[in-house]
Amino acid sequence: MGEILNISLIWSAVRLSTPLVLAALGGMFAERAGVINIALEGMMLAGAFTAAAVTYTTGSPWIGLTAGVAAGLAIAWVHAVASIRYRADQVVTGTAINILMIGVPGFLSGALFLSSGSTPQIPKEHLVPWTPIVMAFAAVPISWYVLYRTPFGLRLRAVGENPEAADAAGIRVAAVRYIGVLLSGAFAALGGAYLSIGQSSLFTRNMTSGRGFIALAALIFGKWRPVQTMFACLFFGFTEAITIRMQGVVKLPSGEDIPVQFIQMVPYLLTIVVLAGFIGHSRPPRALGRPYQKER
């Protein structure tokens, strides 16, 4: 066991939780404003693909990161328009965006790079292995401050809890929700960009492989609060790090591998347990998922 639990494990847990922290914080801004965002996965993919493609083409990871965030904003805007302006079911819209973002990167990479869904390798000197990690963990206290100590944070929470009252108090519900959803797109895309031009050196088909949903799980596990959510992400990143380390190393007394599938299930099982209220109750924002229509 000693060769597995050490400093480098903690370090890889931090690296693996970075995309989760970014996406989960993004999800927090949307959901605290009352808009369900199960499209985090798709937004991450948008960021990952765009960042990799642009970094490869321009040779600058900074332009790549910016472009990735812009792509996240664009996708988030689609989610916002459909679910706020046209009051579409937010879960359905989110599902559509996730499907869309399986297709679009494949489609574009086929045309741009004549590949079947991945970008070419990006040279090592054009990668950003550190900055996104710093950004992610710096974003936690900033998000906390914004959410609990600024007028904007108060408005955001108000439209997510009780849009009618917020409206009566003169808050523009739709505008605040738009900002929440757009922030979620920017954050999630940054998390995705870190996957493609930070952790690895190219975009591959469906490279997020469910991380958007783990981020969602962390958000619920963290009770829609920034600091708790970060700890949830670290915990899930830690389980992922262990899963990677254990493969083929640790054996059961009977000499068999410990099935990785059981460790993979942990975040999802915990989410169900926490939602059901077995370990402390996790209560969603009261108006979550409810489109708001101004009374005439």
Binding site: A82, A88, T93, I97, I99, P105, G106, F107, G110, A111
Partner: peptide, 20 residues
């Protein structure tokens, strides 16, 4: 150049338009 990913794009867009 068109890959079968166009199918996902069409599917997703149909959902978006029906939902909205």
């Amino acid at each position: 150049h068109v890959t079968k990913d166009i199918v996902q794009i069409l599917q997703a867009t149909i959902i978006l338009f029906v939902a909205a």
